[in-house]
């Protein structure tokens, strides 16, 4: 009787829930982005509740596009995402090739390598910015202090002392300024996501054609040309997927930025939206729509690639 109806019924809850989850909040964002809507305004109290009579058209979009913060946030988002992608892909390929062949303790090496990926983002940020990168009390500060002490001691040494007294005192890098805290975020996220790239490249290397490789070795191909002409082309698709998935994740990077750079100006789009949302909901919503557009540009390519393999 119900060959058709039951499967459809079984899918309904999932589809309806996701539809609500997607349409209602996004619809509200779209609506708020076209009206004047602020949380506190004593002179114009009518703006503090959403209403069509406060229609502003594309005014919020113009406001956002004209604000320096927005362009800085876009630029900074792209800089952070780009640097992380570059680091994780290069490190990921190198490490995957390195551990692709068996060696003693390979299982343990894999377990050690994958671990950073499961550390929650909040802990990742707190651990790096305090215990490791702090310029005074973290390992960064302690190591530079140790080097300075060593040089101080060498300066009084008999023969080489004269040479070392020419050396300057080293200054540890502080990762709490605008630019350097972006570097801190890049370092910690690269640390966390390199394991992901390694895992994917390794999975893909397992399916590399070994006979082709052996033939190449017999023909006297060097290790480099094997890598360049066999392995790298084989990794093309996984690289594209790693890049797109990470781009989508890191464009909404939030916890790390919040923890590392509160108040020092190192913002990305999600952080800027959070700042706007403290008062100017209209601007926050318009920025949100821009973020959706940016993510969609990448998502379209990703979905197209996945779609191809879907029904195999």
């Amino acid at each position: 009787m119900s060959d058709r109806r039951i499967p459809r019924l079984l899918q309904t809850p999932a589809v309806v829930l996701l539809l609500i989850w997607m349409l209602i909040p996004l619809g509200m964002t779209l609506y708020f982005s076209f009206i004047r809507y602020v949380l506190n305004n004593l002179r114009r109290p009518e703006w503090t509740s959403p209403s069509l009579s406060n229609w502003r058209g594309v005014g919020n979009y113009e406001f956002v596009l004209n604000s320096k913060d927005f362009w800085f946030a876009v630029q900074n988002s792209l800089f952070i995402v780009g640097s992380i992608l570059f680091g994780t892909v290069i490190l990921g390929i190198l490490i995957a090739v390195l551990i692709n062949k068996t060696f003693p303790g390979r299982g343990i090496v894999r377990v050690l390598l994958i671990s950073p990926f499961f550390v929650m983002p909040a802990v990742n940020a707190v651990l790096w910015i305090n215990m490791i990168l702090d310029p005074v009390l973290g390992l960064n500060g302690l190591a530079v202090g140790g080097i300075n002490n060593l040089i101080d001691n060498l300066q009084t040494a008999p023969v080489v002392g004269g040479f070392f007294s020419l050396w300057p005192e080293f200054e540890p890098i502080s990762f709490r300024a605008t630019q350097t805290s972006a570097y801190a975020v890049i370092i910690m996220v690269t640390w966390q996501w390199t394991p992901f790239a390694v895992l994917i490249f390794m999975t893909s290397l397992q399916s590399e054609d070994q006979q082709q490789k052996e033939a190449a070795i017999l023909d006297g191909a060097s290790a480099w040309s094997q890598f360049r002409f066999l392995t790298l082309p084989h990794l093309g698709r996984p690289i594209a997927i790693v890049v797109m998935i990470q781009a989508i994740f890191h464009l909404s990077l939030y916890a790390e930025i919040e923890i590392v750079s509160r108040g020092n100006g190192n913002k990305n789009l999600p952080y800027l939206i959070g700042e706007f949302a403290n008062n100017n909901i209209g601007a926050a919503s318009a920025t949100g729509i821009f973020a959706v557009i940016l993510a969609n540009i990448i998502a379209i390519f990703l979905l197209r690639m996945i779609g191809k393999t879907l029904m195999e």
Partner: peptide
Amino acid sequence: MLPAAAVLYP
């Protein structure tokens, strides 16, 4: 793939 921050206020 929808960025979460876009729907923060709603």
